[in-house]
Design a protein around this nucleic acid. Sequence first.
DNA 1: TTCCAGGCCCATA
DNA 2: TATGGGCCTGGA
Length: 324
Amino acid sequence: MKTQFHFNPKGPFNLSLTINSGQTSQPPWKEDNHHFQELVIVDGAPCLVKIGHEDSDPENRVNIMAESPETVSEKAIKTKVQDIFGLEHDLDQLYTFLGEDPKLKPTIAFCRGLRIFKAHNPFECIISSISSANCSILRWTRSVNDIKRRWGDGYRFSSGDFYTFPSPTVLARAPEHDLEEMQRCEDNLPLDFVFDKNLQACGVGYRAKYIINASRMVQSELNLEKLARMKYKRAFDTILQLPGVGPKVADCILLYGLGMGEAFPVDVWIKRIIEHLYFPGEELKPQEVREFGMERYGDWAGYVQLYLFHYARKSGLLESLKKK
DNA sequence: TTCCAGGCCCATA
DNA sequence: TATGGGCCTGGA
């Protein structure tokens, strides 16, 4: 099955910026001639979704192409794409909100069209968010791609091979390190056999334990559909129980994985930016910054966090805030 | 070579 | 209940 259609987002939409902004929902989609593609499960069917702007102009409507070994309705694909790229979010309304706060107004010019890049698979977002803790974007995205290649289901398309993210059940059984992988193997392997189908070989380091145990919890007691239906506060407390999930990672999961826009993930940078803008000369605790952001920005908190960080990065503010 | 990154866990008060 | 050291790994 192959299909192709157009789509008009609500307000500006910068696809490339959205995909490459380091949001922990998933690694960037594969880029190919101004289009981005990824294997997404739509209505239970594996579907290669390819998306790009007409004439590669961020202000133009988007082209969507989809390909699947099964039959998938155009409507289902459209709904999924809308959900992933937050195309139903009214950015003009966001810009009105940002424009009312002199501290936030400058972010608009730097981030126009940037949207929440939501997970197409919430479990993948949990694992990538855990992997991102104390770790660079480059490193955690590579780890997630390594995990997909090793344990995901592979599909071959004309534009290349793509993999699903493995299920919690599969990941819960993955070996933590090469020693464990070795112990589980049969002893008639070739002498030069490389033990790399284990989590530490994916570069996740000490987070391997967290990933395995979090996967176990998701396959047993923590129901992700229930979590998605919870109110923010309860969902936050629930997700905190996963190993490797503290306040920052929990908010990333709720924002990028489940689309809870009132989450305000506070990392060291957001902390420094908020202190610089609103509390010059003072030092706040991360928890205080989180409360400040949630109180002040309400339902736009997630977007404000996203915009502040990218504004700071592009404007040079981030560089000047590096600790002395 | 050495240091530390877009935090979390756990031992100590 | 609050604080600080240690942690995998790999780029700078």
